[in-house]
């Protein structure tokens, strides 16, 4: 199955690049949803064909949360604040893409140095995990709209999830549950923030938060 797993990992990587290169919030949400769906496939593919009930259940649950629930929440947030595009990011979309390729280089370099060696797992797993995390960071740092930052958080979290698989098959679920909780909180908080922000300021640009510093 390593072939299929590789294909999934490559797709995961491409969705990260898609996140970096797209200005439309809807497209980004779709990308992050796709990412969530792909993430659900990873445990199934890497353990194929002996899949325990528990593994299957967790995979399905995480797929539902990441690919359906969270994107739906984000879509609602977008509808409420009525923004469709990331208009003026701090780092342009083309530059983000080029930076993405640089990050891919860095990720593969770091992955080569890390003493992670799980037999039978795709050698792509660790680089893709690190890359997804880095892309998440880049999104958070370089985008202005809060929705895009939430998407960045989700990407970051997806990366951590993949990373978990490199260490062990069962344990990451623990970590994962914790992180999922965090994200839920984050999404809620951001959702509320966005809601309030857009009511107070008619805009969801975090730049304008800076004006609160005095």
């Amino acid at each position: 199955m390593s072939n299929w797993l590789d294909a999934v990992l490559v797709l995961l990587m491409l969705t990260s690049l898609w996140l970096l290169g797209s200005s439309r919030l809807q497209a980004c949400i779709r990308a992050v949803a796709l990412q969530g769906a792909l993430l659900g496939l990873i445990p199934l593919l890497s353990k194929w064909p002996d899949i325990s009930l528990r593994l299957g259940a967790v995979a399905v649950v995480s797929m539902v949360i990441k690919a359906v629930v969270l994107p739906a929440l984000l879509r609602r947030a977008v509808r409420e604040v009525n923004v469709r595009n990331e208009v003026e990011p701090l780092v342009g979309f083309t530059t983000s893409l080029l930076l993405g390729i640089a990050l891919w280089g860095i990720a593969t370099h770091i992955a080569g140095r890390l003493p992670v060696d799980v037999p039978g797992l795709s050698p792509l797993l660790v680089p893709v995990a690190i890359f997804t995390v880095l892309c998440g960071f880049l999104l958070i740092v370089s985008r202005n709209t809060a929705v895009m930052q939430v998407i960045g958080y989700l990407g970051l979290e997806n990366g951590i999830y993949v990373f978990g698989w490199a260490f062990a098959i069962e344990e990451p679920l623990l970590v994962e549950m914790g992180v999922l909780l965090d994200v839920f909180v984050a999404v809620f908080v951001m959702g509320i923030t966005i809601h309030h922000l857009s009511r107070e300021f008619d805009s969801i640009e975090t730049d304008e938060l800076a004006s609160l510093k005095d």
């Binding site: 979309f93 893409l97 080029l98």
Partner: peptide, 13 residues
């Protein structure tokens, strides 16, 4: 340009 850069990125991957 983005479309073409995306093609380069596909090649790199």
């Amino acid at each position: 340009p983005q479309f073409l850069i995306a093609a380069s990125i596909l090649s790199i991957v």
